[in-house]
Simulated assay, not measured.
Amino acid sequence: MVVARVDSERVRAVASAISRAGVNGILRLEEVLDPQYDDMQRLAESVGRGPATVYALLVALSSYRLTMRGEEWWRCVSDMLGGRGTPKTVDEAVDNVIWFLSNCPGSLIGRDVKIRRVRKVGTYMRGVLEGLMSRPELVIEKPQDILSSVAASLGSKEERKTVAFSVKMAYYAARARGVMRPLAFDLPMPIDVRVACVTMTSGLVRGPRDYHELVRSPAEAQRAWRDVSLMSGVPTPHLDSLLWVVGWAPRDLDQAAAREEIRRTLSKVIPEAAEAIARELTYIPCPSGGGPRRH
């Protein structure tokens, strides 16, 4: 059995490249390049920032096994819930999310389970959701408290992907454009195939024959990104944003093309760091890439 291990030298190199952008650079990247952030801003403009924050948290908890791409899903959220008007109570907001899940084709798989999940959280977290309705900035001020409440309401671990994602999407709705306040807490990086591949192409983890092994056993990959976060000063939720925007390229393209795509994309927002990040994230080709994929 091949044992995965973190390459400390590569951690330092990747962290050094990302630190050139800094946390403010990554926050700018979210605003300019992450379509999920843009969708949450449009939703906030339609229904108000507080209700949009509650919507984002509840919908994110049901954002799994979707029958459409993530970008299409969040556009559907913004369009459909944005057209429902401003909810006056938490109960009305919960009912609107259930209406959305019942009508958006992206939630077809496991729809009943997703609706029960939203009802459960709406009941258990009523006080927290009421707080977010009136003061959405609470998710920026006390993200760990919100995270703990979501996890407790579901009887789940705080590091579960949908639990952490719900706090991040609520933060996207709560944070107005130009507000440079990061989510000041760290979570284990969710290691999906996209992140697993870029973990290997950046050389952060050695040993596995292909990135699928990191998906099955993510502990070393999570440790590597935690170390990158600590050294670069960029919290892991925001590192995940960076990888969401450019992390598809090493898996879908050959090494040279992926490097150029990342450099070109990041040059729009963080030109001071684009070349260094592109170089370090494509340090080696992605093992078992398997050809082009949609992203």
Rank of each mutant, 00 (worst) to 15 (best):
V14P: 03
G106F: 10
Y124E: 13
A21T: 06
P35H: 01
E71I: 13
L57C: 00
L108I: 15
T123V: 14
G106S: 04
W73H: 15
G50R: 04
L132W: 01
G83S: 07
A15W: 03
E72W: 08
R49H: 07
A52K: 00
M133F: 04
L57P: 01
D95C: 11
Y64F: 05
P105R: 12
G127L: 11
E45H: 10
I98P: 03
R84V: 05
W74Y: 15
I109K: 14
V47L: 04
R126H: 08
E72M: 12
V32R: 01
T89D: 12
S107I: 08
V97F: 09
R117C: 07
A21R: 03
I18D: 04
D34C: 14
R69K: 12
R49T: 11
G48P: 06
P35N: 06
G110D: 09
D38I: 01
G85M: 00
E137N: 09
G25M: 03
S107H: 10
I115F: 07
G82D: 02
E45C: 14
A52P: 02
K114L: 08
T86G: 12
E137Q: 10
I115L: 07
L101Q: 09
T67Y: 06
A93E: 02
R20D: 12
R42C: 10
D39F: 06
R69C: 08
L43D: 00
